[in-house]
């Protein structure tokens, strides 16, 4: 089981209300979010609208507001909220003993062809 999870380091690397990025060689960059509630989520770092870097948006509740055109994206499902339509892939994430893990297949499987 452990082999399927990619350890990306301790939780305190990301302050609550912030996000950090994880570039993937040959794949899509990932944004890892820490909400003010203390939860962690990971999405592909590209808004479904015009690929804005979601990692740079304002985080409120479990929503991030895209910095380019203010689309609200759910951190839980990657879906655009409100009247906007679109979805960005989510990456399964778990926190264990103070470290953040991402599901390996979801990280490296998202490679550009």
């Amino acid at each position: 089981m452990i082999g399927n999870w990619l350890d990306i380091g301790p939780v305190d690397q990301i302050a609550p209300g912030n996000a950090r990025t994880l570039p993937v060689r040959g794949g899509a960059e990932i944004a890892v979010f820490h909400t003010l509630d203390g939860n962690f989520y990971a999405l592909v770092n590209a808004c479904p609208h015009k690929q804005g870097p979601l990692s740079q948006g304002i985080v409120h509740g479990t929503v991030v507001t895209c910095p380019l055109h203010n689309w609200n994206i759910s951190l839980k499902t990657g879906e655009a909220l409100g009247d906007d339509k679109g979805c960005v892939p989510t990456i399964p994430l778990k926190v264990d003993a103070g470290r953040i893990y991402l599901l390996r297949e979801a990280v490296v499987g998202r490679r550009a062809a």
Binding site: L6, I8, G9, Q13, I14, A15, N18, R20, T21, L22, P23, V24, R25, G26, G27, I30, V32, V107, V108, R111
Partner: peptide
Amino acid sequence: AELHQHLAEVRPLEF
């Protein structure tokens, strides 16, 4: 500094 740095970079084996 963390606002400007990536957490890490993932390099799948073939890369």
